[in-house]
Nucleic acid binder design. Structure first.
Ligand code: MN
Ligand code: MN
Ligand code: ZN
Ligand code: ZN
Lengths: 144, 144
DNA sequence: ATTAATATGAAACTCATTATCAACTTGGGC
DNA sequence: GCCCAAGTTGATAATGAGTTTCATATTAAT
């Protein structure tokens, strides 16, 4: 859990774009890498603030954008209108099943659905570039 | 194309909630019903403005909310962050295939995908209440 | 250490949508 | 048709997530 690979990727991205390292970026990356959750900018901000109380919101957004461009992070836009960030590196593609009561995120995977999506796009003469599939409902604990 | 049924549904909704009819509501509903497109509030506003130049933006939003509550309209939230409105009454459930270059909307339907979604939800102990499936890509004319 | 380039935090701004509110309609009772 | 309580409207302010701006601070190459 030292995230050597991820850190190397970020360093390489920084280098390739002639950017610079900073305490803030390192800290935000660390906080992000240490959780497997689907965090909002606000949640990240609160977590980072505990280690560096002078951090600004804009730096969170800016850094998460960098991590996304570097291929370490995926931005998720679910129904509540707040962007969530999740690990991308070394995580295979998946979609989400979300409990609308408690907010639980379950990662789902369906090669069969992906195939059918391709088929549909092809049938209409489209070249598929991405898709969004989210299932909403009540989880085991919330449905009672 | 007189939309008798739709208008009756709206009238009944108005009655059931002790609301009132108004010129503006009638006009916005007419404009909405006459197109089969996936319109934004801005597009509706521009169209309605031609018939009633004093219309306000807020009235568009308010009326579209009423039409949605009445079951005549479905709000669509696609990636660009702008809500679109489409007919719901007498239209069976479908998802969308969208061209990211020209904005073309294609309505798609896949009972097989819907089944698989139910299966996945069940497997994780969820009760599915809704889902969002959008396919993005380049259409026949835009992919060249 | 110098210095040019980049990063930061605070605050202003954006953009879609919603809330507020005074003025204006609507519609049921007379 | 007139009254009038209740609902509606348009203008404008407010909201909230995210972005931009800018003066100041940090980074890293020399
Ligand atoms: Mn995930
Ligand atoms: Mn549609
Ligand atoms: Zn739950
Ligand atoms: Zn196209």
């Amino acid at each position: 859990m030292s995230f050597q690979k991820e850190k190397a990727i970020f360093t390489e991205y920084i280098r390739s774009k002639n950017l610079k390292h900073s305490e803030q970026r390192q800290l935000i990356m660390d906080v992000f890498l240490k959780t497997e959750k689907h965090l909002t900018a606000e949640e990240l901000y609160e977590m980072v603030k505990k280690k560096n109380p002078s951090i600004g919101y804009a730096t969170i957004y800016r850094t998460m954008k960098l991590l996304t461009e570097a291929g370490l992070c995926r931005e998720l836009h679910v129904v509540d209108g707040v962007t969530r960030y999740e690990h991308l590196y070394n995580h295979k593609h998946h979609d989400h099943l979300i409990c609308t009561k408690c907010g639980k995120f379950v990662e789902i995977e369906s090669p069969r659905i992906e195939e059918l999506q391709e088929k549909i796009a092809k049938k209409h003469g489209f070249i598929l570039t991405r898709h969004r599939l989210e299932l909403y409902g009540l989880c085991k604990s919330c449905k009672n």
